[in-house]
Design a protein around this nucleic acid. Structure first.
Lengths: 219, 219
DNA sequence: TCACACTAGATCGTATACGATTTCATACAC
DNA sequence: GTGTATGAAATCGTATACGATCTAGTGTGA
């Protein structure tokens, strides 16, 4: 069956926000979106409420909705949250990763390594997403999986506003990925995998914090 | 200004679900709720969409919404998620807990200890909530704080369907609380506080898992 | 008895309409 | 020039209405 109009509106907005078409601060005017979708405002309102609950949109009464604003603080808080959740997701997922998935992850990481010589940030980010998805996808706890996904979405929505690139981070990242794969392949203890997966993201976070003259994350 | 009807509907439903008036499986019929609130169905639909995104209700097209069903698996997954998030929240919060708050927490824990001789599960749960709130309230990361709150809400919504009580757990719990407070007072490293706070919840989780002949949580 | 078609009632999904509120530009007073 | 009143346009909030869809109950035939 065709999706409901409310569902279509939700998907459209979700995609435009996470893809970066609608950047932070972009106003979501009910009438305009309804017109674009060829529907009335009621389903659009519902879609916006859902996006609001996911943190992608902020909503003010009698004023309207806009794509959630992004500043450095918010971005870093989101990264910190994701570090924690994704670390757990990866550790819980690890025992269920089979040989094929491991091979796929290694191959993605190789592609990332190849990209280092002629760097393409967009492609690198894409591959990075794929890599991590393979790692946490088997997590048997659906709540955690959902939170990881939301974290990525929020980060994606904010990434459009360009943050300074951390020099040398890409190269480190590839190495950390390889290390993570080794731990998983060796059936390392969950706590160790969690620690490594979390640290992988925290390192980036701390680089940003250092650049802003802020203390490192304690976790 | 008076809250919008959509907001009122959201609050009403949220409260009834987390307070246990509406138990898992309870059908949320749009017309009935609208009538109870003295409004039309449009604001109610919005409220339900938000609750859906928070995981408190499930929604099926052309069928309607109901309070999210609760089975043991779901309950345990939620506990596991909360263990991870709350552990982090408590650790991040710890450096910002002042002497007054620490004293308040100790006093709440003492009240819990006093309750052990003439046990009252409802009151004990209330105090437990208060205790943990004091511990994670100062967490400077608003995303994490929000996730903790949502986790508690989901758990509260499910608790109504009575799960077996773990014998002796209350006494252990009070001891673990005291230990946690000592760590915080001594400015223990964040990782250690996180570990202790997480373990506090994981112990309960594992007791349930053991009772169901399932393996313990790896984290 | 069981399976299936059918009907009536309940409930949902969304368009439309209109009052309420905010925003923004303009005009005026100081 | 700065600040404040004013009014129009934009936008929101919600009631109402009605077609679409589901559910459950009833009857019919195998």
């Amino acid at each position: 069956m065709a999706p409901s109009k409310s569902e279509s509106a939700y998907r459209l907005l979700h995609e435009k926000i996470t893809e970066g078409t609608f950047t932070p601060g972009y106003r979501l005017v009910l009438g305009a979106i309804a017109a674009e979708l060829g529907c009335s405002v009621v389903p659009v309102r519902e879609a916006i409420r859902r996006l609001e609950a996911e943190g992608l949109v902020t909503f003010e009464r009698n004023v309207g909705a806009m794509v959630a604003a992004a500043d450095m603080t918010l971005y870093l808080h989101t990264m910190q949250t994701l570090a924690i959740i994704e670390g757990a997701a990866t550790a819980l997922s690890a025992p269920f990763i089979d040989a094929d998935q491991l091979a796929a992850a290694r191959s993605i990481n190789q592609a990332m390594a190849d990209l280092l010589v002629d760097f393409d940030a967009v492609r690198f980010t894409e591959l990075n997403n794929e890599f991590h998805q393979v790692l946490y996808r088997n997590c048997p706890n659906p709540h955690i999986l959902e939170l990881v996904q939301r974290g990525w979405n929020r980060l994606a929505a904010m990434r459009s506003s360009s943050f300074t690139h951390i020099p040398g981070r890409a190269r480190e990242s590839v190495k950390e990925h390889a290390n993570l794969l080794d731990l998983i392949e060796a059936n390392a203890p969950a706590a160790q995998i969690e620690q490594a997966a979390r640290a992988h993201r925290t390192t980036t976070l701390n680089a940003y914090l250092a650049a802003a003259n802020l203390p490192a994350s304690p976790l």
